[in-house]
């Protein structure tokens, strides 16, 4: 395994990122280096992963290595898959860190996705909540080829207006769900 200084030199990390890595405790260093070898992130990806882990550690009065180890444990089965590419590993790791750093935000994201999928599956309607959950406007898109299609669409839209997933999306956006306390 490379030493921290060797890694910084090899990756030509900028000063601010290098300083942050050097500030790691002796206990944190081996865990981080092992992760770096496994994920082989670019400097930007590393900066983001590091920021997330650092903020979780500070918030929970824990250490970066404990946070990283927790994520590795959570993902151990998935990461064991040898077919998984480097980018996918990085993405999975980042998403797991985001779930820890922003538990409500990520739960909302999952719940909105589930509602959108349900509307698509049950009513064949593509409904999209606003980006970053900002706003009170939903985008609904559909394609029709004939007057009959349009008639059907009108019926499906009518059904959507009473559909629990539709109401659920609006409630979540308004802050009126149990996800936000």
């Amino acid at each position: 395994m490379l030493s921290l200084e060797e890694y910084i030199a090899e990756k030509r990390l900028d000063n601010s990122l290098a300083e942050r890595l050097r500030a790691l405790t002796a206990a944190d260093r081996p865990t981080i280096l092992e992760l770096l070898e496994e994920l082989d992130p670019s400097a930007n990806t590393l900066r983001e992963l590091f920021r997330l882990a650092d903020e979780v550690a500070r918030r929970d009065r824990s250490t970066i290595s404990a946070v990283i180890l927790g994520v590795r444990e959570e993902l151990s089965a998935t990461l064991a898959n040898a077919k998984l590419g480097r980018k996918d590993r990085q993405r999975l790791f980042r998403e797991a860190l985001e779930r820890r750093r922003y538990p409500v935000r990520e739960q909302i994201r999952q719940e909105l996705l589930a509602c959108e999928e349900r509307l698509l599956r049950e009513l064949n309607l593509r409904c999209r909540a606003p980006q970053d959950f900002e706003g009170d406007t939903l985008e609904i898109s559909a394609t029709v080829r004939s007057a009959a299609d349009l008639q059907q669409l009108a019926e499906r839209l009518q059904q959507a207006s009473d559909h629990p997933s539709f109401k659920r999306i609006l409630d979540i956006l308004k802050g009126e769900s149990e996800l936000v306390v």
């Binding site: 918030r59 750093r101 922003y102 409500v104 935000r105 956006l173 802050g175 936000v180």
Partner: peptide, 28 residues
């Protein structure tokens, strides 16, 4: 370093500021 203020459920808004996500903001 002791404050919990920086650890909110935020996102980067279009005005380049970190804000709580809308559902939480509205609730508050």
């Amino acid at each position: 370093p002791e404050s919990f203020v920086p650890f909110g459920e935020q996102f980067l808004a279009k005005d380049d500021k970190l804000r709580y996500i809308q559902p939480l903001r509205f609730r508050l």
